[in-house]
Computed example of a mutant assay.
Amino acid sequence: MAEPATNDASLLERTLQVFVPQPCYDEFFVKFNFFDAVCAKVVLSKCLGYSIILGAVLVKLPQIIKISQAKSAKGISFMSVLFELIAVSATTAYGYAMRFPFSSYGEGIFLVLQTTVIVYLVLYYTGQKSGAILFLVIYSLCMAYLLSPVASIQLLSVIQSFNILIVILSKMIQAVTNYRNSSTGQISVITVTLLFTGSLARIFTSQQETGDTLIILSFVAASLCNGIILAQVLYYWNKKPKED
Rank of each mutant, 00 (worst) to 15 (best):
I187N: 06
T92D: 09
S218I: 12
S188P: 00
V30R: 12
L121K: 09
E3C: 03
L156Q: 06
F204P: 04
A175R: 05
S103P: 03
Q207R: 11
L195D: 10
I86G: 04
F196R: 03
K242L: 15
V137N: 01
N238L: 12
A221S: 06
K46G: 00
S157R: 08
P21C: 09
Q128W: 14
V42F: 09
I159C: 08
I153T: 15
Y236F: 12
Q174K: 05
V176W: 01
M98F: 06
M98G: 10
Y236T: 10
N33A: 10
L169K: 08
G95H: 02
S170R: 15
F162W: 10
L230M: 13
T116E: 06
I133C: 03
S199L: 02
I52S: 10
Y50D: 07
S140C: 03
S183Q: 07
L11S: 00
Y179H: 13
V18R: 05
L121E: 06
V176Q: 03
F34H: 01
Q22F: 06
S182N: 10
L134H: 06
I215V: 15
I203E: 00
G49Q: 08
A151K: 01
Y179P: 03
I67W: 11
V192Q: 08
A87E: 12
I118C: 05
L82P: 02
Y145D: 01
C39S: 00
S157E: 09
Y105A: 01
A93E: 10
V18W: 03
Q208F: 11
G106K: 02
G49I: 09
Q232M: 01
V43E: 00
T191H: 04
Q17R: 13
G106V: 02
S183W: 07
A201C: 10
L123M: 09
L12K: 04
S183N: 07
R202P: 00
Y124H: 15
Q22S: 12
V158Y: 13
V30F: 10
S45F: 12
V192F: 03
Q232I: 08
S68F: 08
S68L: 10
A90C: 14
L113S: 15
T213E: 09
E27S: 04
S104W: 04
L195M: 12
G127L: 02
T197H: 04
R14L: 04
I76S: 04
F35Y: 12
F219W: 13
M1E: 01
I153W: 03
C24I: 13
P241V: 08
R99D: 13
T91I: 15
C142H: 06
F110E: 00
T92R: 04
S148K: 09
Y120E: 11
R99M: 08
I215K: 13
K242G: 09
I166N: 04
T210K: 09
V18M: 07
S72I: 10
S152A: 05
T15R: 01
K240H: 08
F32K: 06
G185A: 00
Q114F: 07
T197I: 03
M79F: 12
L234D: 05
T92N: 08
S51C: 11
L113A: 15
